[in-house]
Amino acid sequence: MDVRLIHTEAEYQAALQKIRALWEAEPGTPAAEELEILVLLVNKFEEENYPIEEPDPIEYIKIRMEELGLKQEDLVPYMGNKGNVSKVLSRKRALSLEMIRKLHRGLRFPLEVLIAEPKLNTL
C-alpha cells in the first residue's frame, strides 16, 4: 500500500480512480483498509480545495418546500400570514427570530442555515 497525502489535482484524480478500483474490497482486507485511507485523504483534499458554501436561507427554504411538497400557504404557521411568506420568499422581508425558531422547531430546518446572511435580491 503506497498511500500519500494529496497535494495536486492530478493526485486527486488518481486517488479517485484507485477508490473506484477498490470499491468492492472485502471488509477487513488490506484493500479495504487502503480504500478507507484513500477516502479520508480525498475528503481532506476536497474540504481544503472545494469548500461548500453555506446555502442562502431563502433558497434553502424554497428547495425544502419543493422536496417536502409544501406550498406557500403551508408556511403560514411558521411565518405568521400569507403576506409574510410572500415577502420573505421574494426577499422583501427578512426572516424574524420568531420565524427562524418556528421553522427550526416545526420543520427541522437547520438553525445555521436560517441565520445565515441571505443573498441580495437581484431583481
Rank of each mutant, 00 (worst) to 15 (best):
M1F: 09
V3K: 10
R4C: 12
R4G: 01
L5K: 13
T8L: 01
T8P: 01
E11C: 08
E11F: 08
A14Y: 04
A15W: 00
L16H: 02
Q17D: 12
R20C: 10
W23S: 14
A25P: 05
E26N: 13
G28N: 05
G28F: 07
T29C: 04
P30V: 07
A32N: 06
A32W: 10
E33W: 08
E33M: 14
E36H: 14
I37N: 07
L38F: 07
V39Q: 15
V39P: 00
L41Q: 11
L41H: 10
L41M: 09
L41P: 00
V42N: 03
V42A: 11
N43S: 10
K44I: 12
E46H: 01
P51D: 04
E54C: 06
E54Q: 11
P55V: 12
P55S: 08
P57E: 08
I58F: 01
E59P: 00
K62N: 06
K62S: 09
I63H: 07
I63G: 01
M65P: 03
E67H: 06
G69P: 01
G69H: 00
K71N: 08
L75F: 11
L75M: 07
V76S: 05
Y78L: 01
K82M: 15
V85K: 04
R91C: 01
R91F: 04
K92P: 00
L95A: 10
L97E: 13
M99L: 02
R101A: 14
R101M: 12
K102R: 15
L103R: 05
H104G: 02
F109V: 06
I115R: 06
P118N: 05
K119E: 15
L120A: 15
T122L: 13
L123M: 11
